[in-house]
Amino acid sequence: MTFSLKPDVTETATEHGTVLFDQRRGRYFQLNPTGALVLHTLMSGASRERAAEVLRESYGIDADRAQADVAVLLETLRKKKLATE
């Protein structure tokens, strides 16, 4: 499946990660640099597995932790209705 932000969600890079703005509800969501890395990797068309690999390589964490972190971020973005996969 292809990952994307919902059409009414905008993304802005900050010095502390990324901010997502949900225009429908007027709410902001802050992603730390780790979340921003995963988000941008997925938005470039990479799979969840590749996003976990990039996370693992960038932060030196084990594969299970990286996969779990990607899964949690994706689930949170879906629950908040910010993204689709």
Rank of each mutant, 00 (worst) to 15 (best):
P33F: 09
E49F: 01
T12I: 10
T14R: 07
F21I: 03
D64F: 05
N32E: 11
E53W: 14
I61Y: 08
V38P: 01
Q23T: 09
T2E: 12
G17T: 03
L37A: 07
A66F: 02
L73N: 02
A46V: 02
I61W: 11
R56W: 07
A51H: 02
Q30W: 04
E11K: 12
A66G: 06
R24E: 12
A63W: 04
T14N: 05
V38E: 01
D62W: 10
V9G: 02
L31E: 04
G35M: 06
R24W: 04
R78E: 15
S58M: 11
A71D: 14
V72A: 15
Y28D: 00
L82S: 00
H16E: 13
E75L: 10
Q30S: 10
V19Q: 05
V38S: 05
L55M: 13
D8R: 08
V70T: 03
A66R: 05
V70E: 01
Q67F: 00
A68E: 11
Q30I: 05
T12R: 13
A13I: 09
R48Q: 15
S47H: 00
K6W: 03
H16F: 10
E57K: 15
E53F: 12
K81E: 15
T34H: 10
F29G: 00
A13D: 10
Y28M: 10
Q23V: 07
R25L: 10
P33L: 08
S47Y: 02
V54W: 05
L20S: 01
L55E: 08
R56T: 12
T14V: 06
Q23K: 13
F3G: 00
A36F: 00
A13K: 14
E75F: 05
T34G: 09
A71P: 02
E75C: 00
V70L: 08
L37S: 01
